[in-house]
Design a protein around this nucleic acid. Structure first.
Lengths: 240, 240
DNA sequence: ACAACGATGGCACTCAGTTCCCTCGAAGCC
DNA sequence: GGCTTCGAGGGAACTGAGTGCCATCGTTGT
């Protein structure tokens, strides 16, 4: 937060950008997003109105100042993959990059979460951001699934499932105001997706007796609807 | 399309709304979405500018004139469900309602698809529409999964997977300019989701049989995918 | 005929986003 | 030093979406 000296690690930081983000969030929290105009922000930051739009293409962008970098990181991460990586596990790891960005500034992330939850325009903007992450994952999976039956379909569905699981865990963590263990929550959620789609069998839940060669025994009435049987199986497994 | 007389089935149709949609799409196809102003649309339709915003809250809404009704249909459909419906199958059927709306006017749907593919603003708007469908499905699933472990997570993931599969098939059909069999394509995609979501390594305790003389016993390995278990159950129940 | 009401048109306003041009300061060249 | 060049920033004016307010007009009920 307090960037005192100028000699950071890399990529020279523009102080004006940070000043605009700080001023914007101060006003957003005071009067709300919609009752804050761009003129208010630039007046508080003490810069010209034109400069705001030099750093942020739109008013919404100031709420998500680091997603562009995170998306680039994810793209690089996926591009650096090779055949040795199991695809589904790889996209799960890519999703964890996003969680890392949120976890870097828990306070800021929680504030932003409260904003986006209330303002429809910001929710819509967030959707377009999430969509770009999902596309990056899906494109990677498409490349890995070339030649497989329904490769594109599987890629789209798995990418959507990964994003949904990640966001479910992320929102749960944000609702707890950053108090819980974000990593563990997301791992659990992504583990569910991997158990559904992944090639490698993963741990399912805390089931007693984890011997690999256990057998299952299902006993049911003949008249029971099939889906009820499945549900009972899952319940019996303790993970349903 | 040609609504000649006024005595339709229900919900009196406002002709002005349709005129605005027609004028808007004519101009969108001629000059593109962004180079068409609302003033252009109302001038062509011969109505006042204020009336446009009475029927459509925003310029984007005129591109999706029937999604509001479709969303209401889906909500009603899900609300009319009972315990006898298997939840995942039910949300798949709900998703088919959306396909039905697109299939009603293939030409219109293809035109709109080409528009939304090119214009970023429309893509973003479409995302918010899709998000509302997804929320409706997820909310329904949450209700059905109450009490089950990770119920909310499963609901979110399955809803996202269903939407992704549906959209994958829908886009594929739209790219073929409405020539293929939309229903079959979507059925195939949703079938993948239904089967894939059983695909988890399982291990079982037991289920109490209510009638000792009418039971089925299935034995399988822990690593077996759930769909295999389901298959075994189906076979054993004699309804496969 | 008149009041009430709903649908519509018209006008003015706010605000996001863009275009164009200006200032200023820091190199860099002569 | 005087000069240009260039890039960061400032600022006025413009376009266009969306809103608020009020006038108008046709219909309906009394």
């Amino acid at each position: 937060m307090s960037s005192s000296s100028g000699a950071e690690a890399a990529s020279t930081k523009p102080p004006m950008r940070d000043a605009l983000v700080a001023a914007a969030f101060q006003l957003f929290l005071e009067r709300g997003y919609e009752r804050t105009t761009v003129d208010d922000i630039v007046a508080l930051a003490g810069v010209g109105r034109r400069s705001f739009f030099r750093y942020f293409p739109s008013k919404e962008d100031v709420v998500f100042p680091d997603h562009e970098r995170c998306l680039a990181d994810m793209t690089d991460f996926l591009a650096a993959s090779d055949e040795g990586h199991e695809p589904v596990r790889r996209v799960c790891d890519a999703a964890r990059l996003v969680l890392g960005m949120y976890a870097e500034n828990p306070g800021f992330s929680v504030q932003r979460y409260r904003l986006t939850k209330k303002v429809p325009g910001l929710r819509a903007y967030e959707l377009s951001v999430v969509w770009r992450y999902e596309r990056a994952l899906a494109e990677y999976l498409r490349g890995r699934f070339i030649g497989r039956a329904d490769g594109n379909l599987r890629a789209d569905v798995i990418a959507a499932a990964v994003v949904a699981a990640h966001n479910n865990a992320l929102r749960s963590w944000l609702r707890s105001e950053g108090r819980g263990d974000a990593g563990a929550t997301v791992d659990h959620a992504l583990g569910y997706v991997q158990s559904a789609f992944g090639a490698a069998p993963v741990r399912v839940a805390s089931i007693t007796g984890e011997r690999p060669d256990d057998v299952v025994v299902v006993v049911t009435r003949r008249e029971a609807p099939l889906w009820r049987v499945v549900q009972e199986v899952e319940t019996a497994l303790g993970r349903a």
